[in-house]
Design a protein around this nucleic acid. Structure first.
Lengths: 185, 185
DNA sequence: GGTGTTTGCCTAAATTTCAGATACTTATGA
DNA sequence: TCATAAGTATCTGAAATTTAGGCAAACACC
């Protein structure tokens, strides 16, 4: 089924989110914005946090799918921060409220995704165990996530997270490091 | 009720109308474009001409409502031609097909509307019978409609109907003419 | 503490959408 | 020219969605 109502609810919610903070948006506001019955809202969503979660999940999925290949770490970082930028107003309101965990979870997932994609290229043809690859993924994605985490907490004042270039440069050395160590064993 | 499906059908149809001529648009195309069941189309509309009629009616209504006051004949003419311009692609395909009559009817209605609004100002405080006013409305709106009619038939090549300024200038003298004649009786 | 608003939930009814089947017309091509 | 494919317009009956209206509890504000 097509279900345009659900779509309309999401659109109305995003529209309201650009007008006022999450804490001031009521279910009533949403249903009045898109001209539906209040029960129709509850038919589709448990509550506002559930609506929020679905929107953020969707946007993250979409962003992930739109970059099937990541050929540089900088590009990966760009994708991950794009997620926050795209939802800037929402992030601003959400970040210190209900769904902080959820939001971080998706940002982390995005970081992991882009790093995995990047390392697929970096480790291509290299004789390295999956375990070693996993360590690299965890290490690099964690540090990228850390950058974004700080950036969000500082209010996203700079256009991009600080030190992004230097950290990326450093991280690029890691695959080589692992390949080397792998050969010495 | 909100009914986003009906809205989606209209949007899909307009989208298709900008891609290919009316004659090549099937109900199947429309329902596939907006991802609904074929029967849902027939639930809302009798057939494609009915859909077309509803869209054109809506646009005409909307245009009329967006100009509650017409203070010059040129402005009125602008409103009436806007209707055609706004629907240019649609008009292009429709004009020589099924709904020619309907389209002309709405254009005529728009002309009549804007002229009536304009004359409300022109005849303000003037001691003229309703009959005389009606004659003026019929005369002026018919000639404006004639301009648009020719413009449509010639393919809307110029941005606006030809001779629009001179005809408007001429028409402006008519209220005075009627007021004068009315006093001599 | 009183007042008004919002939430989350309920039921029952109405509306809308669906899949599947049918008879009919119109193109299209072998 | 026949058939066969595609589109139209309808009809069922079932399923999904939306609605109105009401209720108790939580909440916000004065």
């Amino acid at each position: 089924m097509a279900n345009f109502t659900k779509k309309a609810i999401k659109e109305s919610f995003v529209k309201l989110l650009n007008e006022k903070p999450l804490s001031k948006i009521s279910v009533k506001d949403i249903v009045e914005e898109c001209g539906i019955n209040r029960n129709s809202f509850y038919y589709h969503f448990q509550d506002i946090p559930a609506l929020l979660e679905e929107i953020i999940t969707e946007q993250a999925e979409e962003l992930i799918n739109s970059y099937p290949e990541i050929d540089s770490l900088e590009k990966g970082m760009e994708v991950a921060t794009d997620f926050a930028i795209k939802n800037k107003m929402a992030v601003y309101h959400i970040y210190n409220s209900v769904n902080r965990d959820m939001y971080e979870q998706y940002t982390m997932r995005l970081c992991r995704h882009v790093v995995t994609r990047y390392l697929e290229v970096a480790f291509k043809d290299a004789d390295v165990s999956q375990d070693d690859k996993d360590v690299a993924i965890r290490l690099i994605s964690s540090s990228l996530f850390g950058l974004i985490y700080d950036w969000l907490n500082s209010g996203m004042n700079e256009e991009r997270p600080a030190d992004i270039k230097r950290v990326c440069e450093l991280c690029k050395g890691i695959p080589e490091l692992i390949i080397e160590r792998s050969h010495n064993n």
